[in-house]
């Protein structure tokens, strides 16, 4: 026997858009230009890619970030279905040579039922580090063999910058080179993530 409340709920649902195939993301005026109270909406197909929030910070003289071998778009990035490699290059300066990375699925996305089984995962144990005078050829490419690279060191945070502290509050760890690393040394980091059903 049917439940009256269920029937009423279903009747009301037909008057609100509920997508089975696409997901609705909302970006507030704090994230993207939209006046004082505006909202930017984006319909996304989670069966092909997912929107993630990413923070990539480095100490040292400079930081370059690549995703699957191409410069990483850090503002509203999308990660396509499959396995991926995030690659960082930090040029050592005075003091600590390290980086902190957070990447997670954008919260609050309204998912349709077809997309609920898809997950974005980062593999924190996969990070590999290389130190030297110049980056080897193809080091940022997904197929590059980094199995002989070292495991980076986890450093206790000494940073007082707000963006580092926010990243650490989300559980990210500062990883990088030994404290004795000479200024000008190139530090490369490679980590893995995946978006799969």
């Amino acid at each position: 026997m049917s439940d009256d409340r269920t029937i009423k709920g279903n009747d009301l649902a037909r008057f609100e858009k509920q997508s089975e195939t696409l997901s609705l993301e909302q970006y507030s005026a704090c994230e993207i230009s939209a006046g004082c109270i505006g909202v930017v909406f984006r319909w996304s197909d989670l069966a092909s890619a997912i929107s993630v929030n990413a923070t990539v910070l480095g100490t040292g003289k400079s930081l370059a970030v690549y995703f699957d071998g191409v410069a990483f778009e850090r503002r509203f990035p999308k990660v396509e279905v499959g396995a991926h490699v995030l690659a960082l290059q930090v040029i050592a300066g005075e003091g600590l040579t390290a980086a902190v990375v957070t990447m997670h699925e954008r919260p609050g996305t309204q998912r349709g039922p077809d997309a609920r089984r898809w997950r974005f995962r980062t593999d924190t144990a996969s990070w590999r580090m290389w130190l030297g005078p110049a980056a080897p050829q193809g080091w940022a490419e997904p197929g590059f063999d980094d199995r002989r690279w070292a495991t980076p060191l986890a450093h206790p945070s000494t940073r007082s910058d707000w963006d580092f502290r926010f990243a650490e509050r989300e559980g990210a760890v500062l990883i990088g080179a030994p404290l004795s690393t000479a200024p000008g040394t190139v530090m490369l980091l490679r980590g893995r993530c995946a978006y799969t059903p």
Binding site: E16, K17, T21, L22, S33, A34, G35, I37, G38, V39, V40, F41, R42, W43, S44, D45, S48, A49
Partner: peptide
């Protein structure tokens, strides 16, 4: 801002009319 599937001529969306949401 949308993905290509939302551009299909048959795709439907809807929002409230009371002006509470302003969207570019």
């Amino acid at each position: 801002a949308d993905c290509e599937a939302a551009l299909r001529v048959s795709f439907r969306w809807a929002l409230a009319v009371n002006g509470a949401i302003l969207s570019p």
